[in-house]
Every structure is written in C-alpha cells, then in structure tokens.
Amino acid sequence: MPEHQRGEQNVQQQNCGLNRPEVEDFLYLEADHLDQWALDEWLGLWSESGELSYQVAPTGEDDPGSLESSSTMFLISDNRYRLEQRIVRMKKNSFHAEYVRSRTRHMYGHVRIIHQDARQAGVQFNASVYRTKGSETVIYPSLVRATLARTPGGLRLVKKRVELDLYCLATMGALTILL
C-alpha cells in the first residue's frame, strides 16, 4: 500500500483532538494565502520539523492514488529544500511564466479527517482551483491528501498531495501556480 494511504487503515487509538471545523479553518487560510500570492506566509504554514512533501501527481492516470514519486514521473515532487527554492523562484522578476501573475481562487470542499494519531492527522478534500490569465480561465479539479501536524505554533502542513482529474494540462499548460 502506498505510504500516503497507509494511515487510512489504522485504528484510532490516540488522537490529536482535531475536528473538521478546525481543519477547515486552517485550509481556508492556506487557500487564502495562495490566492493572495502571500507565498512566504503560505510557506510559514508548513511544519518546521522533519521532512515535508508537496506533490502534484501526473495527469491522465487511471489510479493516481497508487503512484509513488520514487518510481513515477510526477508533475511536482518537492521536499523542503525544493519547495523553499520554488518560492524563491516564484518571487523573482525572472519568473517569466508568471510575469503577469495568474489570479487564482482555491475552492475546498468535502473535507474529511481520515485518521489521526497523537501528533498529526491525515485529511482529504476536494479542490477546484480557478486560474485566470488574460481573458481565459481554467479549472483544476482534484483530490487533495494532506497531513497536518499539531505544533506549539498551531496546525502545520507536513504533506500536501494533489491528484488532478485532468487528462492533460491543456490551456495554460505550464503549472506555475501552487495548487
């Protein structure tokens, strides 16, 4: 079983006391940072301890949930270092692909807590991200699997994995926004 699904089978023994409204509040803040292009603030929502993972699985796959970035070519698979470097790059004037930045609207729904232990919780939600560039708007529908950790500073992202429903990246083919 892929690592990101493993926790779903766990029997809940102890948990970190997360409930859905709390998760939703966190996710809405996360979405808001992205829509505002508040990239440093968004990065600040990630856990500072341990390894983190931000991934977008490849399009056109029948069962994206079964894929691992170690053996499949993903669209994005960032660890902490590369995610930080991605943000560095996204803020530069030489980030030509978003020289006129896309406007985005992240819509999250069907938020569920799949499992939780004493430290962290696995959550799953549907996302529709609207992206407007020039006169065109496209939608990225997806299932997102995330891991949230309870830390002294509040909830933090440990993993965010986006599984797009798209057959391919058609209009606006370059994925230069954060999903």
Binding site: S69, S70, F74, L75, Q85, H96, A97, Y99, A174, L175
Partner: peptide, 28 residues
C-alpha cells in the same frame, strides 16, 4: 530504486510543466 528516485527528482527540478525551467520556455 535509489538511482531511479534520484533520476526523477533531479529531472523534475528542471523539466516539465511544473519544473524550474520549462514553464519559462513556454512563456517565451
């Protein structure tokens, strides 16, 4: 498995629609 993971990881940093290079090419 180790080298395969490195191959994919290293490539994704540069190439592809979510990489650090291809999107800027597309924009040009």
């Amino acid at each position: 498995d180790t080298l395969r993971e490195i191959r994919l990881d290293n490539m994704l940093s540069f190439l592809g629609p979510g990489g650090f290079a291809t999107p800027d090419d597309v924009a040009m």
